Lab assay of single mutants.
Amino acid sequence: MDGTRTSLDIEEYSDTEVQKNQVLTLEEWQDKWVNGKTAFHQEQGHQLLKKHLDTFLKGKSGLRVFFPLCGKAVEMKWFADRGHSVVGVEISELGIQEFFTEQNLSYSEEPITEIPGTKVFKSSSGNISLYCCSIFDLPRTNIGKFDMIWDRGALVAINPGDRKCYADTMFSLLGKKFQYLLCVLSYDPTKHPGPPFYVPHAEIERLFGKICNIRCLEKVDAFEERHKSWGIDCLFEKLYLLTEK
């Protein structure tokens, strides 16, 4: 054995408090879109979701699917093309516009009456609605409950000090017999300040354990050449399924 860690023996890093005071403002996230600093976007979609999607959907149609901090995630069109209703929230209007443009979807925009100064973008087909606002303002819009949440790049982007508020927001959107698919990253948080932030299993239990059954479905090596600039040499991604207790 050469000592290389595999996707099945990932350790939890003990120094989980080192990132707790890290803060990125909404304006800084918007600047990332304006300046093209969106390496977190996956042009081909998320491979773990693609692998498990049909198993999760079980042939159902007409589900309501929520994408927190959606950006221009191509997976939104995957669900819409399968007959589901997609709702996303994203602070960057540019990111939302790029989604519709890159997916060749016509759309309209209208003000969100409950949140002055914000807009919702709706596909002409009517099954994709993307709200351009802070996720913490979203419950004011009465958008209803969801059958499924796809959380990739959301919890790991939320400032650590806001995670409890974020989890409570997610709980307010969950319908009966929900499936909450959650991706988190595992790396040494003493070497990279984030975002994306390190979210250990214990944190998921703390945030969601009282209401959800929590199961880790898969762990994969997600390290890429660009991650060397973070000062790390190891990065794993974990896919969790959260269901109603």
Score class of each variant (00 low, 15 high):
194 G>M: 07
10 I>E: 14
118 T>K: 10
18 V>L: 12
189 P>V: 07
61 S>I: 10
114 E>L: 07
217 L>E: 04
127 N>I: 04
27 E>L: 11
197 F>T: 04
111 P>M: 12
190 T>C: 12
50 K>A: 10
135 I>Y: 14
50 K>N: 12
30 Q>E: 10
214 I>P: 01
85 S>R: 07
107 Y>L: 03
41 H>S: 10
182 L>T: 03
131 Y>T: 01
65 V>I: 09
187 Y>K: 04
229 S>M: 11
132 C>S: 09
156 V>K: 02
221 D>L: 09
107 Y>S: 03
159 N>P: 02
22 Q>L: 03
81 D>T: 10
63 L>A: 11
3 G>S: 13
80 A>K: 02
16 T>A: 12
223 F>T: 15
215 R>C: 14
218 E>L: 07
160 P>L: 03
129 S>E: 08
41 H>T: 09
235 L>I: 15
108 S>M: 09
79 F>D: 01
177 K>Y: 09
36 G>M: 12
112 I>N: 15
229 S>C: 00
148 M>A: 10
207 L>F: 05
220 V>F: 05
170 M>W: 01
88 G>T: 00
49 L>E: 02
174 L>H: 00
164 K>P: 14
188 D>A: 06
206 R>D: 04
197 F>P: 08
64 R>M: 02
71 G>I: 03
183 C>P: 01
241 L>W: 03
219 K>D: 04
120 V>F: 10
239 L>M: 08
163 R>V: 03
81 D>N: 08
108 S>R: 12
136 F>Q: 04
8 L>Q: 03
40 F>C: 07
85 S>Y: 13
134 S>F: 02
16 T>Y: 07
51 K>L: 15
102 E>T: 03
124 S>Q: 15
105 L>Q: 11
154 A>I: 00
129 S>H: 15
231 G>L: 07
220 V>Q: 14
107 Y>W: 05
136 F>S: 04
98 E>K: 05
84 H>K: 00
79 F>E: 01
130 L>I: 08
90 E>H: 06
129 S>V: 10
23 V>D: 04
221 D>F: 02
169 T>H: 14
235 L>E: 01
112 I>R: 04
45 G>V: 11
198 Y>L: 15
218 E>S: 02
208 F>R: 00
144 G>A: 05
52 H>G: 08
8 L>M: 15
126 G>R: 07
33 W>Y: 03
185 L>R: 05
198 Y>Q: 02
164 K>E: 13
33 W>E: 04
151 D>G: 00
238 K>Y: 02
201 H>F: 11
65 V>M: 02
142 N>V: 09
234 C>S: 14
207 L>V: 09
53 L>K: 04
245 K>S: 05
74 V>Q: 03
62 G>M: 13
20 K>V: 11
58 K>R: 14
67 F>R: 00
164 K>F: 07
186 S>F: 13
219 K>Y: 08
197 F>R: 03
143 I>T: 03
215 R>P: 03
24 L>F: 07
75 E>G: 04
97 Q>W: 07
76 M>Q: 01
145 K>R: 06
88 G>Q: 01
129 S>L: 07
14 S>C: 15
177 K>L: 02
223 F>P: 03
202 A>M: 12
190 T>P: 13
30 Q>P: 02
104 N>Q: 14
169 T>P: 00
224 E>F: 12
245 K>P: 14
77 K>R: 10
13 Y>M: 14
166 Y>E: 00
201 H>K: 15
163 R>Q: 07
43 E>K: 08
71 G>R: 05
219 K>A: 10
80 A>W: 01
135 I>E: 00
97 Q>N: 03
87 V>M: 06
203 E>M: 15
44 Q>F: 14
58 K>T: 14
106 S>L: 09
68 P>G: 01
130 L>M: 09
155 L>N: 00
179 Q>W: 07
193 P>A: 15
103 Q>L: 05
194 G>S: 07
78 W>P: 01
113 T>V: 09
155 L>I: 09
82 R>T: 07
125 S>V: 10
83 G>V: 00
62 G>E: 11
186 S>H: 13
189 P>C: 06
9 D>L: 02
125 S>C: 13
124 S>V: 13
198 Y>A: 08
64 R>I: 01
204 I>Q: 01
107 Y>E: 02
188 D>G: 05
171 F>E: 02
186 S>R: 06
55 T>Y: 03
90 E>Q: 00
217 L>Q: 08
114 E>M: 06
190 T>S: 14
23 V>K: 07
157 A>E: 08
63 L>G: 11
202 A>D: 04
133 C>K: 00
110 E>V: 10
156 V>P: 06
154 A>Q: 01
202 A>S: 14
191 K>S: 12
63 L>T: 10
140 R>L: 13
171 F>V: 10
145 K>G: 10
72 K>G: 07
150 W>G: 00
134 S>T: 08
7 S>W: 11
181 L>C: 12
62 G>L: 07
189 P>N: 00
13 Y>F: 15
83 G>S: 06
207 L>Q: 02
226 R>G: 10
157 A>M: 09
186 S>W: 08
121 F>V: 05
166 Y>V: 01
23 V>P: 13
16 T>E: 13
26 L>F: 10
150 W>D: 00
210 K>G: 06
152 R>E: 03
45 G>Y: 08
201 H>G: 12
238 K>A: 14
165 C>E: 12
12 E>A: 12
42 Q>F: 09
122 K>Y: 08
154 A>G: 07
7 S>H: 03
131 Y>M: 08
11 E>I: 14
169 T>F: 07
92 S>P: 02
89 V>I: 10
178 F>C: 11
220 V>L: 05
24 L>S: 10
207 L>I: 09
10 I>Q: 14
128 I>F: 03
16 T>W: 14
55 T>F: 08
77 K>V: 11
71 G>W: 03
53 L>W: 12
204 I>G: 01
69 L>A: 05
213 N>Y: 14
129 S>N: 10
114 E>I: 02
37 K>Q: 09
184 V>K: 07
91 I>G: 07
215 R>G: 13
231 G>V: 05
233 D>R: 15
180 Y>M: 09
46 H>C: 02
243 T>D: 15
5 R>P: 06
169 T>E: 03
153 G>S: 06
236 F>E: 09
245 K>R: 08
128 I>S: 01
9 D>R: 05
219 K>M: 05
188 D>P: 06
134 S>Y: 03
160 P>Q: 03
239 L>V: 10
169 T>M: 13
160 P>C: 05
94 L>Q: 15
191 K>W: 06
149 I>S: 02
185 L>G: 04
74 V>L: 05
59 G>M: 14
185 L>Q: 11
121 F>G: 00
181 L>I: 13
78 W>E: 05
175 G>S: 06
179 Q>V: 14
91 I>E: 03
163 R>L: 06
87 V>P: 00
47 Q>P: 14
174 L>T: 05
8 L>P: 08
181 L>F: 13
243 T>V: 05
125 S>Q: 09
202 A>N: 09
164 K>C: 13
185 L>I: 09
226 R>H: 01
160 P>N: 01
222 A>R: 10
36 G>N: 06
108 S>L: 13
169 T>L: 13
91 I>N: 02
176 K>C: 10
138 L>F: 06
148 M>I: 07
87 V>R: 02
216 C>K: 15
79 F>L: 12
167 A>V: 12
171 F>Q: 10
163 R>N: 00
153 G>M: 12
205 E>W: 06
103 Q>A: 13
67 F>P: 01
199 V>L: 14
118 T>F: 08
43 E>Y: 07
20 K>F: 12
222 A>Q: 12
14 S>P: 00
18 V>G: 11
160 P>M: 03
194 G>E: 08
154 A>C: 04
245 K>L: 09
116 P>K: 06
130 L>E: 00
60 K>A: 08
206 R>P: 03
193 P>T: 14
153 G>E: 06
132 C>Q: 15
127 N>Y: 12
183 C>E: 09
154 A>W: 00
238 K>P: 03
26 L>M: 06
237 E>A: 04
55 T>N: 08
169 T>V: 08
158 I>Q: 06
89 V>Y: 02
243 T>R: 10
127 N>R: 12
59 G>V: 08
89 V>N: 14
56 F>L: 11
56 F>A: 01
228 K>Y: 09
167 A>H: 01
163 R>P: 00
36 G>Q: 11
216 C>S: 11
31 D>A: 12
18 V>P: 11
141 T>Y: 04
88 G>N: 07
32 K>H: 12
237 E>K: 01
5 R>F: 06
12 E>L: 05
161 G>D: 12
203 E>R: 02
60 K>F: 15
28 E>Y: 14
53 L>F: 13
128 I>M: 06
174 L>Y: 06
196 P>D: 04
59 G>P: 11
40 F>K: 05
48 L>V: 11
219 K>I: 02
158 I>S: 02
239 L>F: 15
166 Y>C: 01
133 C>R: 01
111 P>D: 13
150 W>F: 13
38 T>L: 11
58 K>Y: 10
69 L>E: 04
4 T>G: 13
44 Q>R: 10
220 V>S: 05
29 W>T: 06
202 A>K: 15
151 D>Q: 00
66 F>A: 02
206 R>S: 02
32 K>C: 06
187 Y>G: 07
195 P>A: 05
108 S>Q: 03
23 V>C: 12
143 I>S: 02
243 T>C: 15
